[in-house]
Every structure is written in structure tokens, then in C-alpha cells.
Amino acid sequence: MYYAGIDVGSLTAQAVVINAKGIVAYKSIGVKPHPVQSAKTVVDMLIQEQGINWNEVKFCVSTGYGREQVQAEGLSQDNVSEISCHGMGASWLVPDVRTVIDIGGQDAKVIRVGKGGELVDFVMNDKCAAGTGRFLEVQARTLGLSLDELGTVSFSAERTLELSSRCSIFCETEVLHYLQRGHTKADIAAGVNRAMAERVAALVRRVGLEKEVTMSGGVAKNAAVRAELERMLNVRLIKYDTDSQIVGALGAALMARKMGGGS
């Protein structure tokens, strides 16, 4: 007996299938123009590539910004917010987790969970991009660096330049300003990463920090941001063993198992 979770976000879509014991299969793809299309594609690939018999899926929960449309199309039986799903998924992967930081391309969330992964409190950014992966993307582009390089290059910085953590538009202008003044990309990148970390730290303070703490989402891959954040919050950020992109879909599958009576 299987339970499934489908997470259709703004950039990627994932599906995870679990049984009573744990993860059976998962798949992650880039999104298609329509959320339903993304959901169908990722499920099809799971069936074809990993031989999952979708008929054995007893209950499926959708999450992510396309969650309602996916349910309306009949691909899932219920939908749950990505906030609850992330909390649940993180709690399953790291049972002692109490604070979940997830910084994606458009969204930044900090989630407080209880022992069983249940949602206790959360904050999420408003439309301002300053605390999201988008912020890093824009600054990396201005610096002519890839996202990966933005993280690694800053370890060779001699000093960390001051950059605005309040607004991504301000920050972009400042990056240009520093470039024109001949500062090294490493020093600027260090400033960008610190500004990003400051923004995330501000979100964390809003819900309060309780250990253990995990960090996921695209931004978690930037080691410099992680290091800054660990320093600011004086805490170790736990990485998942599994691909951190699937945390939301995994949470949805766990929700499905609960709703479908599987535990």
C-alpha cells in the first residue's frame, strides 16, 4: 500500500511515494507551464522510470502553489499548505527538529514544529524578494557569477562589504557601485551572502529559534550563507541526508498516509 505526495512549486515539482516503512520512490523535475501538467509529468515519470503502480497509491496529497489545481484535477484527494508539509517532512527526516528554515526561489519560510512534526508557528516572507533565493540570483547575475560560485568565492574574501539586507533593489545598485569602485567579487559576494543571512536570521527571530534546526531549499546549498547564519544564530544547521528538494512532497506523502489511515 502506497501513499503519495506531490509538490508543485514555482520552479520545480516533486512527487514522493512512501509505504508504511518509508520512502519507496521519488522524482523531481523542472515545472511545466501549468501546475497540473507538472504534476502529471512527475507522476508519469515515477511510474515509468521507477515502476510504481499508481493504482496502489491509496491516498495522495498535493502541496505547493499548484496544490488546489492538482486536487481539482483529481490527481490528489486533498491539499495541504507547503508550510505544514515542510514541517512534517523535516520532522520525519530529522526527528528532533523544532525549527525548519526553507528558503526557495520565491519563498522564504521558517517553521516551528512540535514533536510529531505538527505545525506550531511559522513566518513567511511577503512579496518582497529580499529574503529569497531570487535575491541571490539577482546579485550573482550582477556579479557575473553562477549561484554556486557566489557561495564558494566568498570564502576567499578579505573583507565582507556592507550591503543592504532590507531590499534587493537597493542591494543590486550597491553591488554595481562596489564593482565600479574596483572591489573584488569575493568581497562583494561575502557581503551579498551576509545580507541574505541577515534577512533569514530576521525571519528566524520572528518565530523564535528552538533546536534542532534544519535548513533546506536552494539557498541552503550556499555554504557561505549557511556559515553566516550559523554564526548569527549561534546554532548548527542540520543538512538532510536525502535530497532536500523533496521535503515538501515527502511531508505531503506523510500527510496522505495519515489521512488515508496508514498511521
Binding site: 556592507e162 550591503l163 543592504s164 539586507s165 532590507r166 531590499c167 550597491e174 562596489y178 569602485r181
Partner: peptide, 18 residues
């Protein structure tokens, strides 16, 4: 100008100077 008069995080002094 735009900035925070008491916190450097908003606009760095070198940007203001320029």
C-alpha cells in the same frame, strides 16, 4: 537619499558618499 540613519545595513556609507 534613502537609508537608515542609525543602521548601516540599509544603505552603506560609501554608496551615500558617492
Amino acid at each position: 537619499l534613502q537609508g537608515d540613519s542609525w543602521i548601516k545595513r540599509m544603505t552603506p556609507i560609501s554608496v551615500l558618499q558617492e
